[in-house]
Amino acid sequence: MAASLMLRSMNNIITGILSLIKGLIITFNNNFTSATTLQYPDEKKAMTERFRGLIDLYPEKCVACYQCVKACPTACLAMTHKQTDEKKKITNTFTYNIELCCFCGLCQQVCPTGAIYMNKIYEITTYERNKLYINLLNPEKYDEWPHTSPK
């Protein structure tokens, strides 16, 4: 009875110490693998092709159908249109509020001509709040922000 008790406790001790050693082996092995982190901002990760960054526009393709404005769940797009001489509709003003955008991609999906799309900018920080209200018709709107192009 006492012998079996001693045997059981010895067994417990040995399994206990073995479990500790197993854990140590795992961390030791991981010690010699290469780091999984990147030295940002020296090394930047490029996002994928389908990445949903900020909203961007090809103004020449837009037919002012207002589908993107209606599809947006947070109402971050606002547009007005005007008529050209050939009775075609083009955009007059097209504003985009980055504060409200939730990067869902519904506008990009619903656009019939592919005019509105999402670019690959993911470092969306500014020092001033008014820089977050973008005029999509301005071709230099994203010049200040770092672009990391996908592979």
């Binding site: 994928t48 092709e49 389908r50 990445f51 949903r52 990067f103 869902c104 991609g105 999402m118």
Partner: peptide, 9 residues
């Protein structure tokens, strides 16, 4: 990220 374009939502 490759499938849909976002990493969390």
């Amino acid at each position: 990220n490759e499938i849909c374009g976002n990493r969390l939502t």
